[in-house]
């Protein structure tokens, strides 16, 4: 029984981790380029940040519930869970990318243009490196929050550590809840610490 529990903890932890990693990767792949594009357009920026803000305010259980009946992205299972997690992760990544890029000192950007750098060179050599700590901070926020939120995936058949938590609740068995909650908390702490370390490394000397 004990080794069964241990192996289930391990497999659910891996499932959890995979779900979070995929959700963050997709959210990053959308929010990072979107942040770069929107940093140049104040008009659309307001709309996009507004949308991401609204996505953030929907209670997570409700969002999972909304998505289930939808065609294509909906249904029971992992895919729906990942879509929901993505929607949550978008805002912190988008907002911090925007903050990082728009926060680049005007005199630095002006010098870059005036010295004859192309728009692409300015983006890759000046704006992104200077925005990197802020972007990583956004990824950190998104990752830590997603690790927690992903426990709800179990409610729609997405698996992950939430399986223990929901099972423990229905059995009124605290140790089973902890078997899900503790690994999730440890994962969140590790992700937080690791990404914070990267963030510090990327900050200018």
């Amino acid at each position: 029984m004990n080794s069964d529990l241990a192996s289930e903890m391990l497999s659910l932890s891996l499932e959890h981790l995979a779900m979070v990693a995929i959700a963050i990767a997709i959210a990053g792949a959308i929010a990072l380029p979107a942040g770069v594009l929107l940093s140049r357009r104040p008009g659309p920026r307001r709309w996009a940040v507004g949308f991401a803000n609204i996505a953030q305010t929907i209670p997570s259980l409700a969002l999972f519930g909304f998505l289930v009946p939808l065609p294509l992205i909906g249904g029971i299972g992992k895919r729906t869970a990942i879509v929901a997690l993505c929607l949550y992760a978008l805002l912190p990544i988008l907002r911090n990318t925007l903050l990082g890029i728009t926060g680049v000192d005007a005199s630095v950007r002006e010098s870059a243009v005036a010295m004859g750098m192309t728009a692409r060179q300015i983006l890759w050599q000046v704006e992104l490196p200077l925005a990197a700590p802020s972007i990583v901070a956004g990824l950190r926020l998104a990752t830590v929050a997603t690790i927690g939120t992903a426990t709800i995936a179990a409610a729609i058949g997405g698996g992950g550590l939430g399986v223990f938590i929901f099972r423990g609740i229905s059995m009124v068995d605290a140790p089973t809840v902890l078997a899900g909650a503790l690994p999730a908390a440890a994962m969140a702490l590790l992700a937080d610490g690791g990404l914070e370390w990267i963030e510090r490394k990327l900050s200018p000397a």
Binding site: D105, S107, V108, S111, M115, G116, V126, P129, L130, P204
Partner: peptide, 28 residues
């Protein structure tokens, strides 16, 4: 782009790239 590279430009607060060393800045 070519025109600007033939004109050196210096502004009040330097506009140096904070994430680059002095050497990298001068070498731009």
């Amino acid at each position: 782009i070519h025109l600007r590279r033939r004109m050196g430009y210096v502004i009040q607060d330097g506009g140096l790239f904070p994430h680059w060393t002095v050497e990298a800045n001068v070498a731009l």
